[in-house]
Design a protein around this nucleic acid. Structure first.
Lengths: 209, 209
DNA sequence: CAATATCTGTTATTTTTTTCACAACTATCT
DNA sequence: AGATAGTTGTGAAAAAAATAACAGATATTG
C-alpha cells in the first residue's frame, strides 16, 4: 500500500487530532512538536515522525499551525466525512453513550440504538431511533451504519456481533467483557475496565516503562 | 530490570489470563498455543514467546495446563494479591462501574466512591462507602487505594487527578475525555469512546493491517 | 512398543518502530 | 540586515517486537 502509516502512529495521530481540536477552541493557533510531545506524553521526535507520514510539509522551521495541521490529519485519516454508528445494548453504559450528545460534533452520527428487551426500546427516552435487537442486520444495512458500540452483557455479545456482521458492519467498539471472534476484515477494539485495571496493576508491579 | 517483559506482551498476557479464567469455569483443563492464538487473534508463536518471558517451563511437548498456566501468570504479573480501587465521579458511567459486582472476584476491591455533588453522595444507593470529592487525598491515603477509575466530566478531571496523586494513587483508568498530565511514575490509561471510534474509522479508511 | 503426529521452549531472523542527528528554514532582537 | 535561538523534515542508526525455525519432549494410534 502506498500510504502505509504504522498502527501506533495512527493512534497517536488520532490523539493529536483531539488535542488540536481543543487548542482550536482555546484559540491557540500555533504549537511546536515539543509542546505536543509534552501534552501527549511522547517524544518530540515521534511527533514529527508521525506527522511526516502524512507526506505534506508544513512550513518548516516555524511551529505547526493548529488549524492547518488539524485539517491535514483530518484529510489523511478521513475524519472529514462523518460516519454512521449505532449503540447495541441499552443498559446503563449504552444509555449513557447514546445520550452523550457530542459525538456528532466529532464526526460520528449515532443513528440507531438496539436492545433485546422490547420494553426498553419502547419506553426509553432518547433522541435516537430505537429497535429490538433482531432487527440489527436489517437496520444496519438500510442505514449504512459502519460502526457499532457494543454494550451488552457478556452472554449476548457474540450473537450481537454476528448480527452486526450480517448487516455489513465495519468496526466495533466492544464494551462487553466477552472475547469476540469474527472475520479478519472487521476491526474490533476492546474496552474492558477489568482488563485495564489488570494491565495497570501489572505495570505497577513490574515497574515497566 | 531483571524481569523485563515488553509492554505489548503484558497486555496480551492479561488477556490470556482472562481467557484462562473463562476456561477454568468451563472446565477445560488443557489448551495449546494454537488454540489460544485463535481465540485471542494472535499467532501461536507470539503466545509461546509471551509465556516464555515468564521463565518457568510448563511441561514441554504437552499442551498447557489451564490451571497451572493461569497461576503462573497470576504469580508473575502480581494478580494474586488483590488491590484496592476507587471510583471518582458518580454519574451514569461511574454508577454503572461501582455497582458492577464482579470486580472483587477478579482481584480488585472497590473500597470508595467520590463525587463533588454532596447530594449524590448522600442519596445514591450503593454497597460502597461514598465521600465528597475534597476528601479524596485523605481517604486514598487512609485506605491505601492504589487504583482509580475516573469518570467525571471533562472540566473536573485534572483537579481530581491532582487530588488522587496527593493521596498517593499509582494508576488511573481515565474515562473522561480530558488529556491528563501528571508525574511519570503514575500510570494512566485512557478509555475514550470517541478516540476509539476515530481509530477504527482511520483503520477502516486506510485498510491498515 | 514402535511410529507418527502434535506440542512446547528458545535461539535466530526478519520486520517494525522508535530514536537520533543534522541540514534547512523561520522568527526575533539588536 | 546580521546574528542568534528555536523549529521542522527526514534519512540513517538503534532498539524493540513479531515471526520463523527447529530441537527436544509428549501424547496417541495401531
Amino acid at each position: 500500500m502506498i500510504n502505509s502509516i504504522p498502527e501506533p502512529a495512527i493512534k497517536r495521530l488520532s490523539a493529536l487530532y483531539q488535542l488540536l481540536c481543543r487548542l482550536e477552541v482555546s484559540e491557540v493557533n500555533a504549537i511546536s512538536s515539543r509542546e505536543i510531545g509534552d501534552r501527549l506524553d511522547i517524544s518530540a521526535h515521534t511527533v514529527r515522525k508521525d506527522i511526516s507520514y502524512l507526506r505534506e510539509s508544513q512550513t518548516s522551521g516555524a511551529r505547526y499551525t493548529v488549524l492547518k495541521l488539524k485539517e491535514l490529519i483530518a484529510r489523511s485519516l478521513n475524519f472529514a466525512t462523518s460516519r454512521k454508528a449505532c449503540v447495541v445494548g441499552l443498559g446503563k453504559i449504552g444509555t449513557a453513550i447514546i445520550n452523550y450528545s457530542r459525538f456528532s460534533s466529532y464526526g460520528f452520527d449515532i443513528v440507531a440504538g438496539f436492545d433485546s428487551n422490547v420494553n426498553i426500546v419502547e419506553t426509553l427516552p432518547a433522541e435516537t431511533d430505537l429497535f429490538p435487537s433482531y432487527m440489527i442486520p436489517e437496520i444496519v444495512k438500510e442505514r449504512e451504519i459502519e460502526l457499532a458500540i457494543l454494550a451488552v452483557p457478556f452472554e449476548a455479545a457474540q450473537l450481537c456481533v454476528d448480527r452486526l456482521v450480517k448487516g455489513g458492519i465495519k468496526g466495533i467498539v466492544n464494551f462487553s467483557s466477552a472475547l469476540l471472534t469474527t472475520d479478519k476484515n472487521i476491526v474490533i477494539t476492546d474496552v474492558d475496565v477489568t482488563k485495564e485495571l489488570r494491565v495497570l496493576s501489572a505495570m505497577i508491579s513490574l515497574g515497566s516503562k
